[in-house]
Simulated assay, not measured.
Amino acid sequence: MASPILEVRGTDVFYGASQILFGIDLSVGRGQTMALLGRNGAGKSTTFKAIAGIAPPRRGQVMLSGTSLAGKAPYLVARAGVGYVPEDRQVFPEHTVEDNLIVGAKAGPRGDRHWTTERIYEVFPILAGMRRRMAGRLSGGEQQMLTIARTLMGNPDILLLDEPSEGLAPLIVQAIGALIRQLREMGVTILIAEQNMHFCLGVATHAAVIDKGQVVYSDTIEALRGDDAVRQRYLAV
């Protein structure tokens, strides 16, 4: 396995008195595209919120490049190198596409600025033609691309994509998949939370399966593709 950039160890998360995650263990290697797969309510989004500091773990560790993120506020987690794209996109609707990108711009944790508006427009040509359009007037798929692009403007070490295919038309899902494969080829480390297994089989290099707040499987995407028992038990609808 590639050297781990993100490690989640023995992590428990509660919402009030209700425990949602039970000793989550997850490791993402540098340059990998890891799919965190599971049915609705399995704990995928809560895992992302635990990593991002939005739902702080009660027990366990979240490590990024060997540095603990435990107890850090979400803005400090972002500064440390975690780029989080939530499932509800959250663009600034009354601002232009370019304004949304500029709002997200910051140096990475080592001061690097690999992602600029110019590079974004090269990788996301659809946004280049919409740079003056209000973000609230974009389609759902266009907003999804804008949110991913805005997060990349923060030059993160790892990109968390929460349900990137949810609610989108099949053609747009294909475009999002092509974008993720392009980012993977560029060396971007990506963790995707999805219940759409078929989407992930086409974009991920590795997979972990979460069920009832616990990681029950972790291997390469090819191993998951060939494991009918795991797919039927945990991912079949």
Rank of each mutant, 00 (worst) to 15 (best):
R9G: 00
V13H: 03
L21S: 04
S27A: 13
R30S: 09
T33E: 02
M34Y: 12
L36A: 12
G38P: 13
R39E: 05
N40L: 13
N40D: 10
S45C: 07
F48Q: 07
K49F: 08
K49C: 02
G53V: 02
P56E: 14
P56R: 14
M63E: 10
G66L: 12
T67Y: 11
P74G: 05
R79D: 01
A80D: 03
G81L: 03
G81I: 03
G83S: 11
Y84N: 06
V85A: 09
V85L: 11
V85F: 13
E87Q: 15
V97W: 07
E98N: 10
D99L: 03
D99G: 07
V103C: 09
V103I: 15
A105R: 14
A107E: 12
E118L: 01
R119M: 01
P125C: 11
L127M: 08
G129A: 11
G129E: 13
G136H: 07
G140V: 06
Q143P: 10
Q144M: 11
M145T: 01
A149S: 10
A149R: 07
R150H: 05
T151M: 11
G154A: 15
I158K: 06
L159W: 08
L160S: 07
G167Y: 07
G167I: 06
Q174L: 07
A178L: 10
Q182L: 14
L183Y: 04
E185Y: 00
Q195E: 11
G202D: 10
V203P: 06
T205I: 03
A207W: 00
K212Q: 13
G213H: 11
Q214M: 14
D219H: 13
T220G: 15
L224F: 09
D227L: 06
D228K: 14
R231C: 06
A236L: 14
